[in-house]
Design a protein around this nucleic acid. Structure first.
Length: 426
DNA sequence: TCTGGGGTCCTAGGACCC
DNA sequence: TCTGGGGTCCTAGGACCC
C-alpha cells in the first residue's frame, strides 16, 4: 500500500481544563464539573458527568444555572496560566514518544508514529496514555490513522471507548467508524459546509468519503476537497513540526459590566495594547498595522447595536508600547460614539514580522530609538520578575479594579511560589 | 441582569502594471 | 464615437479551528 507509510496519532486531553482543575482538587473527581470562559460568560470545558446532564459546549453560563444548582455542578472560572503550564508538561511528555510532533492546540498534538510497526501501534498508544497520566495526571484519548483528518475521526470515537484508543491502520473497520461520525463532526467541516452537505444528502463522514472528488472540487473549494481526500486516506495536510511565529496578535476582553465613557474604553484599549506589545516583543516581532475595535452586545436585540473598527498603518514597524498606545488611542477616538453601552474592546496587531526586517524610512525618529528599546526591555524584565502590570503606563488606569468577572477561580498558579501549599507542623 | 478569546487559511475582486 | 489583454499583488471578509 502506497500511503500506509504515514502513521499519525492525534493525542487529545480529555476535558482538558476540567482535568487541570481536578489535579489540585481531588474532591471534584467523578463529579460534574465545568469551566467558564473569561468573564464567566460561557461553558468551555465539561466533565463527562456534566455532559450527561445536558450542559452544552459554549452555552451561556446563566442559561445552565438551574441545572448547575439542581445537580451541584462544580463551577470554575478559567485559569489560563495553570492550563498553559500543564499543557507544557503534557507536550514535553509526548515529545519523548515522537520528536516529530505538531502541537495543534493547548490540549492536542499530532505525533508521527511512522517508525512504529503496525502491529505495535495499539500497544504504543497505550504506553503514551499511561505515561502522560502518570507524569502529568491528565487523561487522554488517541486516534491513529494514515492522515490527520482520519486520526481526528478516530480520536472522536476513541473518546467514547473504554480503551481510549482507536487505531485505523490496517483494519477493515474504517468505514464502520466513518459511518458513526456525523458530517458536522468531521475536521474541516463547519456550519456552512454542514448545511451544504446535508442539503445534498451527505450526512456522515462515510458518505463524504465516497463522493466524487470532481463534485467536491466543483462545489466547495480546495479545503473541502482536501478534507474528502484525507478521509479516503490520501494525506493532504502535512505535519507542522516547527511552530512558526504568529502573523497576527489580538488581545480583547468583554467587560464585566457595560461601559459608556471614552475614558473607560481608553483604559481598556491601553491595557490590551500593552499586553499585545509585550507579547510580540517576547517573540522578537514588530507590527506594521494596528486595529482597534469596540462593540456593544450583539445579543441584546432590542437595544442599539454598534460595532466599529479602525486600522492605522504605522509609518515604521515597531513594538514600542508608548508609540503603539498613542496610535491605538487615536484609532479609538475615530470610532467612539457617545450613547452606547459597550460590551467589548480589543486590539489587533497585524503584519507581524521579525525585528531584523525593521528598516528605517524617511519618517523614522531615530533620536530616541535606542533609549526606547532599553526602556521596553526594562519594562518586560520587571514585569516578568514582579508580575504583570508591575510597570505600566498611567493611561492604563492606576490600581483600578479590573472590570472583569471571575467569581469561581481556583486561584491555583503552578508558576508562582505564593501559591505553594503550606503545611503547618505542630 | 448575565452570551469567550485567539488564531489560520482561502478567495474574489480591486489596484496597478505593461 | 470608438476604448485590449494579460499578468501580479494586496486585502477584506468569510469559513474554519480550538
Amino acid at each position: 500500500m502506497l500511503y500506509n507509510k504515514n502513521k499519525i496519532a492525534l493525542v487529545d486531553c480529555n476535558s482538558f481544563y476540567v482535568s487541570c482543575e481536578r489535579l489540585f482538587n481531588p474532591s471534584i473527581i467523578k463529579k460534574p464539573v465545568i469551566v467558564l470562559s473569561s468573564n464567566d460568560g460561557c461553558v468551555i470545558s465539561r466533565s463527562t458527568e456534566a455532559k450527561i446532564l445536558g450542559i452544552k459546549m459554549g452555552e451561556p453560563y446563566f442559561k445552565v444555572k438551574k441545572i448547575i444548582k439542581k445537580n451541584d455542578v462544580k463551577v470554575f472560572s478559567s485559569n489560563y496560566s495553570l492550563y498553559g503550564d500543564i499543557s507544557r508538561r503534557v507536550m514535553k511528555t509526548l515529545k519523548q514518544f515522537s520528536p516529530q510532533m505538531e502541537i495543534y492546540s493547548i490540549d492536542e498534538a499530532f505525533l508521527n508514529l511512522s517508525s512504529i510497526r503496525d502491529e505495535n501501534l495499539f500497544e504504543h498508544g497505550n504506553k503514551i496514555r499511561k505515561t502522560v497520566l502518570k507524569w502529568t495526571g491528565i487523561p487522554t484519548s488517541i486516534g491513529i490513522a494514515t492522515t490527520k483528518t482520519l486520526s481526528k475521526a478516530a480520536n472522536h470515537i476513541a473518546k467514547k471507548e473504554q480503551s481510549g484508543i482507536v487505531n485505523l491502520i490496517n483494519t477493515k473497520q474504517i468505514d464502520q467508524i466513518l459511518k458513526e461520525i456525523e458530517i458536522n463532526e468531521v475536521w474541516g467541516v463547519g456550519r456552512q459546509l454542514t448545511k451544504f452537505y446535508i442539503k445534498n444528502g451527505i450526512h456522515t463522514a462515510y458518505q463524504l468519503k465516497n463522493m466524487h472528488n470532481n463534485w467536491i472540487k466543483k462545489n466547495t473549494n480546495v479545503l473541502g476537497s482536501r478534507t474528502a481526500m484525507e478521509l479516503k486516506g490520501i494525506p493532504c495536510v502535512s505535519l507542522k513540526e516547527h511552530q512558526e511565529k504568529r502573523k497576527n496578535c489580538c488581545v480583547s476582553r468583554s467587560f464585566g459590566r457595560k461601559v459608556t465613557k471614552l475614558e473607560e474604553l481608553s483604559e481598556s484599549v491601553t491595557t490590551h495594547c500593552l499586553n499585545a506589545a509585550e507579547k510580540i516583543r517576547s517573540d522578537n516581532q514588530t507590527t506594521k498595522r494596528i486595529t482597534v475595535f469596540i462593540r456593544t452586545s450583539p445579543f441584546q436585540k432590542d437595544k442599539n447595536y454598534y460595532a466599529n473598527s479602525k486600522d492605522i498603518d504605522l509609518p515604521v514597524r515597531t513594538n514600542d508600547s508608548i508609540e503603539l498606545v498613542k496610535q491605538a488611542l487615536i484609532a479609538l477616538q475615530y470610532i467612539y460614539r457617545k450613547g452606547y453601552k459597550y460590551q467589548k474592546a480589543g486590539i489587533i496587531f497585524s503584519g507581524l514580522n521579525e525585528v531584523d526586517i525593521y528598516k528605517k524610512n524617511l519618517f523614522s525618529s531615530i533620536n530616541n530609538e535606542e533609549k526606547r528599546k532599553k526602556l521596553m526591555k526594562a519594562i518586560d524584565y520587571t514585569n516578568i520578575k514582579y508580575g504583570r502590570h508591575a510597570l505600566s503606563i498611567a493611561q492604563a488606569g492606576l490600581r483600578k479594579k479590573l472590570n472583569i468577572k471571575r467569581q469561581h477561580s481556583s486561584k491555583i498558579d503552578t508558576a508562582c511560589f505564593d501559591f505553594l501549599p503550606t503545611i503547618k507542623i505542630a
